[in-house]
């Protein structure tokens, strides 16, 4: 699981309560006060001591499920080589920026691993599954607007981030829905029902109570696919 913010907290909780035991949590960030109202494993003490998010989520997972064996890596995913992708069966993306998503997307693809990506903005959420070598990957659904903001980080809190815009902070009910859909996809994989995986993008609009699947077709010019041999 890459990213241990609002989405990462919920995904980790759902994974271990669903029976997943071996979970590696990668996040380079530390807990801050503004994380606390939407991250179930974080406390004021964690914020005061600036505890690494990955470590805190790993501790929380152990407390929830004593049989679980989480490990924490406090590091930027972009600084990690391809081995970590090969060493895992499923990659769960709980990231807050497009550059990291592209890194995880391409590495998962080349390692032949299923990548379940979640994203949120206020009441809006999206889940996409990349299932190599079939179908579209995350990058196939991106365009020039993604390139322009690729290196910016979107806040799960609205504070203590690089990218300051008048955006809604992560909203816990949206987080719950998106994390549940992501973990449901992971459960399909481990229960032998890859045939039921999301083939397109799942969009959720909590204000209008709409959820729908929107087709994202494979882009023949996508660098992820064109470089595959």
């Amino acid at each position: 699981m890459v990213g241990a913010g609002a989405l990462g907290n919920e995904v980790a909780k759902d994974l271990v309560l669903s029976g997943f035991k071996n979970l590696t949590i990668v996040d380079m960030d530390h807990v801050v006060g503004s994380n606390l109202n939407r991250c179930m494993f974080f406390t004021e003490e964690h914020a005061r001591t600036r505890a690494p998010k990955a470590d805190v989520v790993a501790q929380g997972v152990r407390a929830l499920s004593p049989g679980a064996e989480p490990s924490a890596i406090v590091q930027r995913i972009e600084e990690m080589g391809p081995a970590i992708f090969r060493d895992h069966d499923i990659v769960m993306g709980c990231l807050d920026n497009i550059a990291a998503r592209l890194h995880v997307n391409s590495n998962s693809y080349y390692a032949g691993r299923i990548y379940v990506d979640g994203g949120m903005d206020g009441f809006l959420g999206k889940v996409m599954v990349s299932h190599p070598p079939e179908g579209a990957c995350l990058q196939c659904g991106m365009n020039r607007t993604h390139s322009k903001v690729a290196s910016l980080r979107y806040s799960c809190t609205g504070k203590d981030v690089v990218f300051h815009e008048p955006r809604l902070a992560a909203e816990i009910t949206t987080t719950s829905v998106i994390s549940a859909v992501m973990v449901r996809e992971a459960l399909k994989v481990v229960s032998g029902r890859k045939d039921l995986l999301l083939a397109n993008a799942f969009y959720y609009d909590g204000q209008r109570n709409i959820s729908e699947e929107i087709e994202v077709s494979r882009d023949p010019n996508c660098p992820v696919h064109s470089q595959r041999v």
Binding site: G5, G119, M120, D121, M142, T145, Y154
Partner: peptide, 8 residues
């Protein structure tokens, strides 16, 4: 035109 949510 729809926003593509990228926060986490």
């Amino acid at each position: 035109l729809i926003p593509d949510p990228e926060g986490g």
